[in-house]
């Protein structure tokens, strides 16, 4: 059985990026600190992965202030949602193929 790994999105190969996208699929938006607490990763790791997703235009960023503290919120873009769904479908296919 030929297994097609090409359909998997390269952007989601990294576990942290995959997790960020999962969170943004089910939440309207999520802020940096909450993401960090949830994923249990360092500031730097999270920031660089967010940047990568931003570069792919999978997420959009909104910066605001709560009082004097800067607050950065992330949202999944339409493009990102589509890419994630396709990635999920590809994962499902691969698993089904392996079952045979």
């Amino acid at each position: 059985m030929k297994v097609d790994f090409n359909k998997l999105d390269k952007a989601f190969e990294n576990r942290v990026r995959l997790q960020i996208m999962s969170v943004l699929m089910v939440n309207e938006n999520y802020d940096f600190t909450s993401l960090k607490e949830l994923l249990e990763v360092t500031d730097g790791n999270l920031a660089s992965n967010l940047k990568a997703l931003e570069k792919e235009e999978y997420i959009t960023i909104q910066k605001s202030f709560i009082g004097r503290k800067p607050n950065t919120n992330y949202q999944a873009s339409a493009k990102g949602r589509k890419a994630f769904q396709e990635h999920l479908a590809a994962l499902e296919q691969l698993i089904q193929q392996q079952k045979k």
Binding site: R15, Q19, S22, M25, V26, L38, L39, L88, L91, I95
Partner: peptide, 15 residues
């Protein structure tokens, strides 16, 4: 593959 799926599910739920 299975770990990926598990982590997607886990994150969707816990977030």
């Amino acid at each position: 593959l299975h770990e990926d799926l598990a982590s997607i599910r886990n994150m969707m739920e816990r977030s």
